[in-house]
Amino acid sequence: MLKILKYSFYDLIRSRWSYVYFLFYLLLGFVLLFLNNDVSKAVITLMNIIIVLVPLIGTIFGVMYYYNSKEFIELLLAQPIKRSSIFLGQYLGVAGSLTLSLVLGLGIPFVLYGLFKSDAIFDFSLLLVTGAFLTLIFTALSFNIALSNENKIKGFGYAVLLWLFMAVIYDGLFLMSLIIFKEYPLDTFSLVATMFNPIDLSRTLILLKLDISALLGYTGAVFKQFFGTDKGLFISIFMLVLWTVIPIWRLSYKAKRQDF
């Protein structure tokens, strides 16, 4: 698997898009930090961008890369390599290079800004960790979609729909259900509903770490009680890990049964 990972990683490192993605974050990091001078505000702005952009890029990159490397995969399938190694290697290559672009792109400006001395280091690392998780999750989901759809247009469509659902529609449904069922106690429901969407989960996790949860009113207090504690953090990270592991497991399960 490491060999496949190496080749797909090199392949991506040489591609222009990895650099565009990296430079975008680099620029964003520099602009936000050095023109803003308020780390906490910069983290919030970054969060808003990361929460939407990282899943989108992960999804689109994942689908595109899978379809583009179909020939490569077919070539490898006839070689003495385990099937799951081929797909996991490719997946980790894409997810790894995207994560690297994100972490380096945002990390460099923060290090230059002197983050290690500031007390925002924890918030910021949490931001990078959730960003990395979102990349892993959405790349894995998109690989699953691409593997299940021979037709590129369909696969691409489903992948974009998935992103749209997770990033926008889910929140809409969530809010609507809150309004419709407002007569009932909804604390547990909202907590659970948040857990089932990795984007919402990441957002809530970061917001509550930033001590602005007072703005969120009563529900905010319930959330703070849950996410603010170590147990809440642990459970949230656990959910993110589940969100990563399940699609990867399905990917290797499906890959073993697919005809090429």
Binding site: S69, E74, L75
Partner: peptide, 17 residues
Amino acid sequence: WKYRQEIDYLPQIANFP
């Protein structure tokens, strides 16, 4: 998958990266 070490295969359509 190890048995494929004993096989050389020439695919029908030469698709390469």
